[in-house]
Structure formats: structure tokens, C-alpha cells
Simulated scan of single mutants.
Amino acid sequence: MTAPAPHGMVIYACNKAQMTAFYQRTLSLQLRASHDSHDLLAGPGLSLVIHAIPAAIAQQISLTTPPALREDTAIKPMFVVADLAIVRREAEATGGGLQPDSRVWQMNGHTVLDGWDPEGNIVQFQQVSPS
């Protein structure tokens, strides 16, 4: 059994399979375990659990396509990625998206762009800027 990565988070999802695909593909994570209630994704230094919201609760949550963005939450996860163009492609292929390139900004040697997952959670992606 592999030890968990030193950092991680749990994301609750109405559609576990779609959310797992989004995070697996945009962050290049490996599926380490899959159960009815949750999937475990892992990569260097990160464990991510996609946990299914119980059906009785999920039925009360209204999701739209495209998703309504949840911009008023107190937490926004941030991930460093190799290539924002690849993240955009994979996000769009799995029901999420990224802001247009005109919204890119720079911070601490990184090119930064916000996006969203298939259920509307805001996610920040950072690519190391070329020197």
C-alpha cells in the first residue's frame, strides 16, 4: 500500500466519475483507488479524493451545463501545472473550462489563470513562466 502524499484535499461531487476525469486529466494524476463512495487520485506531493455526495443530497443540488460558477466560496484550490494549453483542452473535454487567455496574469514567476470544474468550483492553475 502506498503512503498518501503529504498534501491533499477532498472534493465532494454530485457526479463522481466526471469530476474524477476532470481532476485526473487536468492535473495529470493517477487513479490509485476507486470505490462506490470515492476515488483517490495521486501525483507527486498531492492526494485528491473525489467523494460522491449521497444520492438523497445530490438530488437537491441543481447543476447546469455549462456549470454555474461558485465564485462566492471561501476556498479556491490552486495547482501548478506544466502547460495551461493542455489544462484548457482537458478541462473543456471533461465539462470544465478556463477563463480566456486575456485574463492571464503573472505572480511570483508563474502565469496564472482561473478555471472551473464540471460542477462549477473555481480552480486556479499556475504554469511556471519561461525565464
Results as ranks from 00 to 15, higher is better:
Leu84Ala: 00
Glu92Asn: 11
Ala13Asn: 03
Pro54Cys: 03
Val80Gln: 08
Lys76Tyr: 10
Asn108His: 11
Leu48Ile: 05
Met19Pro: 02
Ala3Tyr: 08
Lys76Gly: 06
Tyr12Glu: 14
Leu84Met: 02
Ile11Glu: 06
Lys16Gln: 09
Ala85Gly: 07
Pro54Thr: 03
Gly45Phe: 04
Ala56His: 13
Leu31Lys: 08
Glu119Met: 01
Val10His: 10
Leu63His: 02
Leu40Gly: 07
Ile86Thr: 15
Gln60Arg: 14
Gln18Arg: 11
Glu71Met: 15
Trp105Asn: 05
Asp83His: 10
Val123His: 00
Ile75Ala: 10
Leu63Thr: 01
Gly115Ser: 08
Gln60Trp: 08
Ser62Cys: 14
Met19Gln: 14
Thr26Cys: 12
Val80Tyr: 05
Arg70Gln: 15
Gly115Pro: 05
Glu92Thr: 15
Phe125Met: 02
Gln30Phe: 09
Gln60Gly: 10
Ser131Pro: 13
Asp117Trp: 02
Glu92Leu: 15
Leu40Trp: 04
Ser47Pro: 04
Trp105Ala: 09
Gly115Cys: 08
Gln59Phe: 09
Leu29Gln: 00
Asn121Ile: 09
Asp72Cys: 13
Val81Pro: 00
Val104Leu: 13
Glu90Arg: 04
Ala58Glu: 04
His38Ala: 15
His35Asn: 11
Phe79Leu: 05
Leu69Lys: 13
Gln106Leu: 10
Ala42Asp: 06
Val128Pro: 09
Ala33Gly: 10
Pro77Asp: 02
Arg89Asn: 13
Asn15Met: 03
Pro44Thr: 14
Ala55Lys: 12
Pro118Asn: 05
Val112Trp: 04
Gly45Arg: 07
Ala85Asp: 13
Asn121Trp: 13
Ala56Leu: 07
His7Cys: 08
Thr26His: 01
Ser28Gln: 14
Pro118Gln: 07
Leu63Gln: 06
Gln24His: 07
Leu41Ser: 00
Ala13Ser: 11
Pro130Arg: 08
Val10Arg: 14
Ala74Met: 11
Thr2Asp: 10
Ala13Met: 03
Ile57Tyr: 08
Thr20Leu: 07
Glu92Ser: 14
Pro4Ile: 08
Ala52Phe: 01
Ala91Ser: 07
Pro66Asn: 09
Glu71Ile: 10
Asn108Cys: 06
Thr2Tyr: 09
Gly96Glu: 03
Ile53Arg: 02
Asp72Gln: 14
Ala52Glu: 12
Pro77Phe: 02
Thr64Trp: 12
Leu41Gly: 00
Thr111His: 08
Asp114Thr: 13
Arg88Asp: 05
Pro44Ser: 15
Gly109Trp: 01
Ile50Cys: 07
Arg103Phe: 08
Leu84Gly: 00
Ala93Asp: 05
Leu63Asn: 00
Pro77Tyr: 01
